Amino acid sequence: MRRKKIQVMIVDDSAVVRQVISSVLKTDSELEVCGAVADPLFAMTRMRMQWPDVIVLDIEMPRMDGISFLKKIMAERPTPVVICSTLTEKGAETTMQAISAGAVEIITKPKVGLKGFLHDSAKVLIGAVKAASKANLKPIQAASVKASSLKVKPKLSADTILAAGKLSILKTTEQVVAIGTSTGGTQALELVLKALPRLSPGIVVVQHMPEKFTAAFSERLNSLCEISVKEARHKMRVLPGQALIAPGGKHMLLKRSGAQYYVEVIDGPLVSRHRPSVDVLFRSVAQSAGANALGIIMTGMGDDGVKGMLEMRQAGALTLAQDEASCVVYGMPREAVNRGAVERSLPLVEVPQAILDYSQ
């Protein structure tokens, strides 16, 4: 019996973009382009005849913008959406609105050299569409938790960035929480960080996201959270009541000076196909914090972070994974559980309480 192909609709006002994305997706035998249209109104007409499994959506289009279209889809029939957005500061801010509305992935496109860029990024584009097709949209839409409800108690591996070394197991009073996530992680992180009170341990985060988008993402979270949320800069201190988000296109490592922690933000090759890489962050946490750390791996496709989380556990850190039922894509957490890197799995809504319990 032949496996049903993933049906993909492309909605973009650029004929070049539609043609290039179509040709890229057609190179994969598991994908089929069921429509490529110039704007959301054309898309809605086509979707009445055949509803796609995944939509690749531009933001700025005539007659109806992508965000309005996305909100309409999510209200009518929730469908995985991959945003194909221009890599600009303005585009990043708008794309964050789309992520908030329910989009699960971001693909960036430059203003010049578009055709060559999309062909060079074929694996990324195909991977994003496949990851989106597996997305479970219900958990994020249904999940919520309030800070007031929390009980405060009295591929290339990471070797290319940071060599494996002696693990830190000395327990100190300074604690750090390290979170790694990918597909679906923007909504999951928003839920977790919004629920935390100001008296929370310092947090370092790798969310797979392109350059420029992490700044807009951090600013959005900062406007919503009691804790401070910032895009990390080189040598920035890790402080209680603050979350540092690794900037897109850079690796972030945790370092220790005495009893204090800070981050290094550096260049380097892709690790586990990503930059920033969760594996790089988690390995650095194992080496610099050891038993003083809590590691959390959340929704995402692939296995980035699995090796680093195992090293964290071996160093004495508490390691947790988001459970399958609450993940948009149960990829990274599944691999971490299967390799013995995780001490316990828990629903997304229980993650904020676990962070506070750890810090007591």
Rank of each mutant, 00 (worst) to 15 (best):
R3N: 10
K4L: 11
K5Y: 04
K5F: 04
Q7C: 11
D12E: 14
D13R: 09
Q19E: 14
I21H: 00
V24E: 09
L25C: 03
A43S: 11
R46Y: 12
M49C: 08
K71G: 05
A75D: 13
R77S: 12
V81F: 00
S85I: 04
T86S: 13
K90N: 12
A92D: 10
E93G: 03
E93Q: 13
T95Q: 08
M96C: 14
L114M: 15
K115C: 03
V124D: 15
V124Y: 03
A128Q: 01
K130S: 04
S133F: 10
L137S: 07
L137R: 07
P139R: 03
A147T: 11
S148N: 15
L150H: 06
V152H: 11
K155C: 06
L156D: 07
A158R: 02
T160W: 01
A163C: 09
A164N: 13
G165N: 13
Q175V: 07
V176L: 07
I179E: 09
L189C: 06
E190F: 06
A195G: 04
L196R: 03
L199V: 10
V204N: 04
V205Q: 01
F217P: 06
F217R: 01
R220F: 01
E226Q: 12
E231D: 03
H234I: 07
A246D: 07
G248I: 00
L254A: 04
K255W: 02
A259V: 12
Q260I: 02
Q260E: 15
D267N: 15
S272K: 15
S284Q: 08
S284M: 01
A289V: 06
A291I: 09
G295P: 05
I296S: 07
M298F: 10
T299W: 08
V306K: 00
M309L: 13
G316R: 01
A317E: 06
L318N: 06
V328R: 02
M332Y: 03
R344W: 01
S345M: 11
P352R: 09
D357Q: 12
